[in-house]
């Protein structure tokens, strides 16, 4: 199904399966997944809970080990990619260290990489500015709203300057207005930085608005059931969500989700 070419592909997955061993037996989290992501794409994984979308991303990030199949990230194994800090990862929650200021949270990965103080300062300043948080450097996480905290975690992921960004339902815990606002910001950020983004969500409008490609997944076992190209103009705004083209793609995603999801059990 997938042609393996190592030129432009940032992520290559072929025949990937992952089984979890639980008390109740073996659960197939991912089954025969094939996927290629090209440089500069914004790819969303969408699907109901338990469809393996987060697990798939965790495999790419070497936080989970697959049972079978080939996975390459930047032409390396996920483990090598992680060791070279080839990607940034934004979690479902901000995951900020409460005893560190905003600035010190952003410099955390840079400290671990052994960057100089001056570099740490410059990079944290640059990326806090990019997420519109300049002036909040010396605040502590608890002094910030949920949306601001998540922006700090995005700045932290960007500060190591990876070409690849993994985002695991980063706005799932936020209210709709904040979420819309951050979606808009993220789109600008993606356009400005030309990074490859892999994005997990269970919100259809979010996926359609942000993505250049949508991967629809279904549970038991977790597998890809549809891949939808979705190329709206780069300068799109949130208003695009009212257009027929947008609604048509959203409809196709919804149909995919319904087809793959059996509500009988």
């Amino acid at each position: 199904m997938t042609e393996i070419n190592t030129l432009n592909s940032v992520v290559q997955v072929a025949g990937l399966s992952l089984d979890f061993v639980t008390k109740d037996g073996i659960v197939s989290a991912l089954s025969e997944v094939d996927l290629t992501i090209e440089s500069g794409e914004f790819v969303s994984f969408i699907g109901p809970s338990g469809c393996g979308k987060t697990t798939l991303m965790r495999v790419l990030a070497d936080l989970e080990t697959p049972t079978a199949g080939r996975v390459q990230v930047n032409g390396m194994t996920p483990s090598q990619a992680r060791q070279q800090r080839a990607y940034g990862y934004v979690f479902q929650a901000p995951a900020l260290l409460p005893w560190r200021t905003v600035q010190d949270n952003v410099t955390l990965p840079l400290e671990i990489m052994g960057k100089s103080k001056a570099e740490q300062q410059a990079l944290s300043h640059e990326y806090l500015q990019l997420v519109n948080l300049d002036g909040f450097e010396n605040k502590f996480p608890w002094q910030l709203s949920g949306g601001m905290q998540q922006r700090v975690s995005i700045a932290r992921a960007l500060s190591v300057e990876p070409q690849l960004l993994f985002m695991d339902e980063p706005f799932g815990a936020l209210d709709e207005i904040t979420r819309d606002h951050l979606n808009d910001q993220l789109l600008r950020l993606w356009q400005a930085t030309k990074k490859t983004v892999v994005f997990v969500t269970h919100s259809i409008p979010e996926a359609v608005f942000l993505s250049s490609r949508i991967v629809v997944m279904s549970p038991r076992p977790g597998r890809i059931i549809d891949v939808i190209d979705c190329n709206f103009p780069l300068d799109r705004t949130l208003d695009i969500r009212e257009t027929p083209e947008f609604l048509a793609i959203a409809q196709r995603v919804r149909q995919g989700l319904q087809a793959g999801h059996s509500y009988d059990d």
Binding site: A61, D62, L63, R82, Q83, Q84, R85, Y87, G88, Y89, F91, Q92, A93, A95, L97, L108, P109, I112, M113, V160
Partner: peptide, 14 residues
């Protein structure tokens, strides 16, 4: 520390 924070450190190869 939550598993998420432990994972976070793993993504930095700490």
């Amino acid at each position: 520390p939550s598993p998420m924070l432990v994972d976070l450190m793993a993504t930095y190869h700490a």
